[in-house]
Design a protein around this nucleic acid. Sequence first.
DNA 1: TAGTCCGACTGGTATAGACAACTAGTTATA
DNA 2: TATAACTAGTTGTCTATACCAGTCGGACTA
Lengths: 243, 243
Amino acid sequence: MKNMIDKYSPLPIYYQIEEAIKGRIEKGELQEGEMIPSEREYAETYGISRMTVRQAITNLVNDGYLTRRKGKGTFVANQKIEQKLGLTSFTEDMKARGLKPSTKLIDFQISEARGKIAAGLGIHPGDEIYEIQRVRLADNIPMALETTYLAADLVKGLNQRIVQGSLYQFVEEELGLNIDYATQELEASVARETESEVLRIAKGTPVLLIRRYTYLKDGRPLELVQSIYRGDRYKFIIDMQRG
Amino acid sequence: MKNMIDKYSPLPIYYQIEEAIKGRIEKGELQEGEMIPSEREYAETYGISRMTVRQAITNLVNDGYLTRRKGKGTFVANQKIEQKLGLTSFTEDMKARGLKPSTKLIDFQISEARGKIAAGLGIHPGDEIYEIQRVRLADNIPMALETTYLAADLVKGLNQRIVQGSLYQFVEEELGLNIDYATQELEASVARETESEVLRIAKGTPVLLIRRYTYLKDGRPLELVQSIYRGDRYKFIIDMQRG
DNA sequence: TAGTCCGACTGGTATAGACAACTAGTTATA
DNA sequence: TATAACTAGTTGTCTATACCAGTCGGACTA
């Protein structure tokens, strides 16, 4: 029996449940994406109130261990895609450095894919793409210019509001697509006219150019993100884990 | 009257309360550190259940707007410090990336302040200081070397156990000192002998050096933290796969 | 005066139940 | 056959209540 809940323990019941579920996830008994027993099931199994179970699960949802889906169930969360891929590294990095990160949307349009971009997205030149341009700021100082390209037919229903939220969540939960991996290229370059204006640096200043290709489970390219970081104020930290 | 709660709105009541409180904070009607009305008071005011109020407040606590103190009340959180000082930034940062953060205490000693450190802490050379050295790891891979300097007479009673918990909580709650602000310096550097050993990188590898000075409300410096992050400027292509 | 106790406040934990909203599969119907 | 209705499951919201556990101040006591 794994009835490890002790109603008379000084530890709150919800906490005991929390640890039990977390333990099962960490031991791999509950796999990513797998549905966990329903709230009512837990309540009945342990002879406690459903609200108490909810409290435990709510905490785990807030900690990113679980996700709820109304009408369906509660599932073991995928490791946060964005961050695992280092996608929001700018935000995180800036926070870690004690600076206040922010993002300014400067352009959101539908255009036609040209050579390199079409190739990167695996579509034909002339196909429709979303082109989203943002400035990344730290303490209101422009640090990077980021341009995202997405194949329009892949992410139908995308709009400005979603772009300002989490694109990856939208893609996974709304469109049911699974993000698999990303590739990044780094290279040194110099600021061109447009970039120097947005970043408020002199034309010709050294910049760091980063191109990221994100792919879906089925191998299709999802997005191409090109970021230009000013070299004088920003230095990258990339963690190379899990070789 | 500002009874803006509509029981028959499609918006959940807890959400309406949430927005109302958040609004009052953002408009400055509720100041940082100020106590907000008690849960029972909200419940009575709006004619709703205390549990519903709790749901709203719990969300705001999770979002960092409020903090609860048992027996005392619920207070508007001091966001600046948490965010701007990035007190738990490393831990948060790594968690957000799906890595398991850990901290290894490698040195805890009382020594004498030397020039730059004494100046930074506003004390005289030769005065006693605590010197705490930690390695920050992500998935057991060393990521940063962090050295904290504290004036000994300011934080009497500090011990190893406290250091492994929250220093800031100890300072604010036990010593009754108020942390006010911090300044940070960033610079690029290269790994020296000691650092390269601890971080397991080659001597001379580029690293990011961050110096943070934290000050109390009365203007006295509380601590000087020097962090050395490993940098990876020369990595070219990074592939990140999801489990 | 100094100390103790009590009461009134705060948030923390837990219950049992109700109904709404949503999902997915099955069954009945046009 | 296609569609609508039903059903049994899920999470979401909300109530009313109870008692526990800290905090703090005032009244009482030694």
